[in-house]
Simulated assay, not measured.
Amino acid sequence: MKNEALISARKAKGLTQEQLAELLNCKKSSVSNWENGYSTPKLADAFRVAEILEQDVNHLFLVNKVQDSQTKASSA
């Protein structure tokens, strides 16, 4: 499930995936994987993303995971 909160927050700051990756000192593919829901950042990176994007870390990463798990549970 795509992380729409992360995508929206990054775009609102006017950053590309590559620019965000540079600020985080990581690969663009990492940012892409986070946005596409293939992986999540390490805790320290998650807080740094939230700081850069001026968003709550829970809003960017936790809310998406909770919604995803609830969707899976209701379809079981």
Rank of each mutant, 00 (worst) to 15 (best):
M1F: 00
K2D: 04
K2N: 04
K2F: 02
N3E: 01
N3F: 00
E4G: 05
E4I: 10
E4Q: 12
E4K: 12
E4L: 11
E4F: 08
A5Y: 12
L6I: 10
L6A: 08
I7H: 00
S8K: 13
S8I: 06
S8M: 09
A9D: 06
A9R: 03
K13F: 01
K13H: 07
G14C: 13
G14D: 14
G14V: 14
G14Q: 14
T16S: 12
T16V: 00
Q17G: 07
Q17R: 09
E18A: 14
Q19I: 11
L20A: 01
L20S: 00
L20T: 04
A21I: 06
E22N: 10
E22G: 04
L23K: 12
N25P: 05
N25K: 15
C26E: 11
C26S: 15
C26H: 13
K27Q: 10
V31M: 11
V31Y: 13
S32P: 03
S32I: 01
N33K: 12
N33E: 15
W34I: 03
W34G: 01
W34P: 02
W34Y: 15
E35C: 03
E35P: 01
E35Q: 09
E35S: 02
G37T: 06
Y38R: 14
Y38K: 15
S39F: 05
S39P: 05
T40L: 04
T40G: 03
P41W: 00
P41I: 00
P41E: 02
P41Q: 02
K42P: 08
K42N: 07
K42Q: 12
L43M: 10
L43V: 10
L43G: 12
L43C: 10
A44S: 14
A44E: 15
A44F: 03
D45T: 11
F47S: 07
R48S: 09
V49A: 09
V49I: 15
A50E: 02
A50M: 00
E51M: 14
I52Q: 08
I52P: 12
L53H: 02
E54S: 11
E54R: 11
E54L: 06
Q55K: 15
Q55I: 14
Q55Y: 13
D56Q: 06
D56K: 04
V57P: 09
V57N: 11
N58F: 13
H59Y: 05
H59R: 02
H59A: 00
L60H: 00
L60Q: 01
F61I: 02
L62W: 12
L62D: 08
V63I: 06
V63R: 04
V66A: 05
Q67A: 10
Q67P: 02
Q67T: 05
D68E: 14
S69L: 15
S69N: 12
Q70K: 06
T71H: 14
T71C: 08
T71K: 15
A73S: 13
S74M: 07
S74E: 11
S74H: 07
S75T: 13
A76G: 13
A76P: 05
